[in-house]
Design a protein around this nucleic acid. Structure first.
Lengths: 341, 341
DNA sequence: GCTTGGCACTCGAACGAAGAGAGTGCTAAC
DNA sequence: GTTAGCACTCTCTTCGTTCGAGTGCCAAGC
């Protein structure tokens, strides 16, 4: 559709616009030594590119700015994915590996790292829990009145819940824990039912009264488990982006991401495998029509574990950001899949 | 020092300025029915108040704005602390009590709630952990290669650490956990030493090789425990404050609170008991000279557990905010002290 | 002697005109 | 097909003007 020169000019315009954020004039492009054509010729080509919808003028006497279509072509032609340089790769890996911590914390760390490295806003979903199978469980005495219930899912995510429960000791709790694991292991966490819990009574007849007291507490607690759905980081980055430095706009963006239904809509739309980019109007959520949204999923072995969404202005360093996101995603997947352990 | 009328005028000026954010003119004050004096008289009084340093003019033909000294007098004369209305009290308590969760999560919830209710930025420190005594401990198998170490401190704070540790089963882990608890219970967590851990060997001779493998992992993990020091929330609120809506300023504030040494300085300065307010230049940290900082500490029984800092522009609804902060602090203390459990 | 109406004065905010500058489209020549 | 040249357009900045809110001070009044 576009000839080589047109494509080259379009790329130069977009590169320049990404760097400087100001409409690009024909003279700027004509200065490029690999092109060696005059500004007048560039102007003619620009008029064509505009007619084809790849660029437009904010006003009559301004330079050109890429349209969504222009960005799309630009992004699609970034086939030669820049590999992250070794230094950055080591940095990311070391930061994510430092301190062996909980799944949630690793995701948060990765999102924070991404926010810092990309200078954009990040939303990440935590590894799922409720829909997974239970793989281990433990009751731990915290104080005279409190017991901690630890649940481990088959995707190695851990949750803890504090119960109000007194008049027991750790030895009894261990017995109860063991019995519960035997009875509940393999059940989907959100579907754990009272019947299975009640089998405790038969296992541990001698502690009947303790169990009678504990069962309803356990049931209620399990019912109230919630997936901590999203972690948000780097929204303050919107404050430095000239396109959003109008604090009204920045705040609107922030408020947008406090709305769970918006996040759900955004996350439901993410396909697995690879990295996806939605530019401007390509986003279904109209509030994001001025943004580009880059999404990917991190995995546990061969299943999706959670998703990462990068949100920024359409004017962003796609090439660099894609490579950082990709490497972080892969590292995260490796960590969760146990490659590094 | 000030006569009744002067004090009244000062309060009216500050009330009006807090509400409207614009310099207050003599005519505005003279309209107040309880005063019933002309604007000319107000002007004379204002000139006196300015001479005394309680108010000042941003420029010659503008109204008056409270100085730090003026705010100080205003805040100190707010003796009749407004009690929070029952509705808000119930709201705060229910929100903080809903779902019995971990200490960290309760603090985060409280900070988030405060950010929403006050419209200001909140920094909270989590309950301390490293300097506390160990009260319970448990190893839980997560997968073939991972074991979770759960630590409970005597102030009922729970931490979990993932260890890479394979070739064992939950029964052995239970035995090891029990032995560790016996040997380490009461030790200060950051001081747990290898010697005490090594006693495992004598307790559980039959698992000698497992123990030899586990001890160094445990030691390293315990060394690397870090107190998750601070939780920050509501900084986006700075975007709505006209005084900071200049996004440069808002961003500066945000960056300020990413610096741990600043937060440490801020938190070290907090006294216990009660609610403290630093206005403008009263803050040692020069970057906060345009802000007011309200601080308080939540407690576990009769000892400080963590601190809460509210940061906003000097122009804030001190009366309302103090009462919200106070009630939240008290509720938090009650929850941690087990009053509600 | 405090209070008040009146008045000249001051200063910032808003508005508009003028000028500069960047960039364009078009035309005619190469 | 490319390019130099030129008229044209539109934004941005600057500068002066006006408008209005608010002041300080003075002289009269209670």
């Amino acid at each position: 559709m576009l000839n080589t020169r047109q494509l080259q000019i379009l790329q130069l315009i977009i590169d320049d616009f990404i760097n400087n954020g100001m409409p690009v004039g024909s003279r700027t492009i004509s200065k490029n030594p690999t092109l060696a054509i005059s500004s007048a010729t560039i102007r003619n080509e620009m008029a064509d590119l505009e007619e084809l919808g790849y660029i437009y003028q904010p006003h009559t006497s301004a330079g050109r700015v890429p349209s969504d279509l222009g960005y799309r072509l630009y992004v699609d032609s970034l086939a030669a994915d820049k590999l992250l340089d070794a230094e950055q790769r080591v940095l990311i890996r070391n930061l994510l590996l430092s301190g062996k911590i909980k799944a949630e914390e690793i995701v948060e760390k990765a999102a924070h790292l991404l926010a810092e490295m990309t200078g954009l806003a990040i939303v990440a979903s935590y590894p799922g829990f409720k829909k997974r199978a239970l793989s281990n469980l433990k009751l731990i005495k915290i104080s005279d009145a409190k017991v901690l219930l630890i649940l481990v899912s088959d995707n190695e995510v851990v949750k803890s819940i504090t119960l109000s429960f007194s008049g027991t000791n750790q030895d009894i709790l261990d017995l109860i824990s063991n019995s519960l694991v035997r009875n509940l292991e393999g059940s989907t966490i959100e579907d754990i039912d009272i019947k299975k819990i009640s089998r405790l009574k038969y296992d541990l007849k001698q502690y009947g009264n303790v169990i009678d007291y504990l069962v309803p507490i356990l049931r209620d607690s399990l019912k109230n488990i919630e997936d901590n759905e999203f972690y948000i980081d780097g929204f303050e980055n919107f404050l430095t982006v000239p396109e959003f430095s109008n604090s009204e706009k920045a705040r609107k963006m922030y408020r947008l991401f406090e709305r769970k239904e918006i996040l759900n809509e955004l996350f439901d739309d993410i396909q697995s495998e690879g990295i996806f980019i939605k530019i401007g109007d390509e986003n279904k959520i109209t509030e994001l029509n001025e943004c580009s949204v880059i999404t990917t999923a991190y995995r546990y072995r061969s299943k999706d574990l959670g998703k990462i969404v990068v949100i920024g202005p359409k004017r962003m360093d796609y090439r660099g950001i894609i490579s950082v996101v990709e490497y972080t995603r892969n590292t995260l997947s490796d960590i969760f899949s146990g490659i590094y352990l």
